[in-house]
Amino acid sequence: MDIFREPKVSRRAVIVGGASSAAVTALVPASAQDAKPSTLAASVPEMLKVSFTVNGKVRELELDTRTTLLDALREHIQLTGTKKGCDQGQCGACTVIVDGRRINSCLTLAVMHEGDKITTIEGLGAVGDLHPMQAAFLKHDGYQCGYCTPGQICSAVGMLAELKAGVPSHVTADPAVGPKFSNAETRERMSGNICRCGAYSNIQEAIAEVAGVRS
């Protein structure tokens, strides 16, 4: 028996199981195994309160547990700078910085971020007060249609912090020695951000300028 061999259980059975939670030794109570799935019950969303800080501002939300961090930012806080591309962690358009680290906001639930500090493209800088990475993207024309740009910029900022902290990458010759700033390093580390227009060389120019290396 392995973990993915369990019988499918209904929502109703979960409520029953929850009420009789004293029986912790049996993972799936016999009653639950026998229960017929109820599609009606299965469609009732669960709501939960969560509070986190976005770009310095505390946000208190009550959300369907299914809401991703990406959808919470875009649909509930109206911060639409963060983009939805593939919604499967493959394109990087949804990249935001959580507690100092870049992540894909599409593959994480909003309710998993209680107390976290989230920075989106809107929080990095503003018109008239651009983050150096935003300014460099403008200067080097690091985009064409612009859809992947917020993710590229948040990713680039997080990526340079990782490089500085000595996180190795696939092109680091010796992880024990650590990485050196180079175009090969920044290219490899940005592979999680896809640009369908193919503005990669200008994106790399922008990153190189901020990192202080020649691309």
């Binding site: 680290r101 894909n104 990713s155 990526m159 190795p168 592979s191 999680g192 951000n193």
Partner: peptide, 11 residues
């Protein structure tokens, strides 16, 4: 570091 992306490995 040969797998996934920087963002994914952070999570």
């Amino acid at each position: 570091v040969a797998g996934a992306s920087g963002q994914l490995r952070n999570k």
